[in-house]
């Protein structure tokens, strides 16, 4: 589903080159739930933005759903983002001027979908996250957990091949975070491929697989003993 080979991302200024990702390799299979972890500044978010075609990369190869994306133009990248990728952001990123229904509708409109199909998909997605009754509410009228569930509904409505989540519970309290995480697990059980960036060992423990990044490279989790132990401890305490 997602394969990066020897990928690099360099930020250049006049005086310095900074490698955000260096010789980065990752392979995520269809239906997997992968947690990408690492300390702050390790390159997790850069990986996510490149994976989600929000940014270009400097070198290497990236295949998404069998398509080599490095030569795609802006329109083609937009189309892939719209049709194959669902984004869940830490800050929810709902559009404050639009109500819940219109927010979920945004990616579907850019796909050129007809109104009846859009409506059916939106209501299905909102029912799935338990917010069908809040369709006419504006984001400011919802709690953080509800807003994140709307964002998940927005990501799901387009039936994406890949869900990319960037610290999806980072702005939520424990109870709301648990609810969102359970929702993601449920979506994964239904067959979705999920790549979640997090620095929370408890969340990482709930994914099928952990990919740990340090200094822009994938490393063995054992190379970060404290995080390794925290993940193991979380897994041990997990009710599953």
């Amino acid at each position: 589903m997602l394969k990066m080979t020897h990928l690099s991302k360099v930020y250049r200024t006049e005086v310095v080159e900074t490698y955000a990702l260096r010789d980065f390799n990752i392979n995520v299979n269809e239906g997997e739930f992968v947690a990408v972890t690492g300390p702050s500044g390790s390159g997790k978010t850069t990986f996510l933005t490149i994976a989600g075609l929000l940014e270009t990369f400097t070198g290497g190869q990236y295949h998404l759903d069998g398509v080599e994306v490095s030569n795609l133009n802006d329109n083609e990248r937009s189309k892939i983002r719209n049709e194959k990728i669902g984004f869940i952001f830490q800050a929810f990123n709902l559009i404050p001027d639009l109500n819940v229904f219109d927010n979920v509708e945004v990616p579907l409109r850019y796909r050129g979908m007809k109104a009846p199909e859009r409506k059916e998909r939106i209501m299905n997605a909102l029912e799935r996250v338990g917010l069908a009754s809040r369709a006419k509410h504006y984001p400011a009228e919802l709690s953080g957990g509800q807003q994140q569930r709307v964002a998940i509904a927005r990501a799901l409505a387009g039936s994406p091949r890949l869900l990319l989540a960037d610290e999806p519970t980072g702005n939520l309290d424990t109870q709301m975070a648990r609810g969102v995480m359970e929702l993601l697990e449920e979506i994964h059980r239904e067959g979705a491929t999920i790549v979640m960036v997090t620095h929370d060992p408890e969340l990482a423990a709930r994914a099928q697989r952990n990919v740990h990044i340090i200094d822009g490279q994938v490393v063995d989790l054992a190379e970060d003993p404290r995080f390794h132990q925290a993940v193991h401890a979380a897994r041990a305490n997990s009710p599953a």
Partner: peptide
Amino acid sequence: VRRALGATQ
């Protein structure tokens, strides 16, 4: 956000 969700320029 709109661009991330698939809006073209």
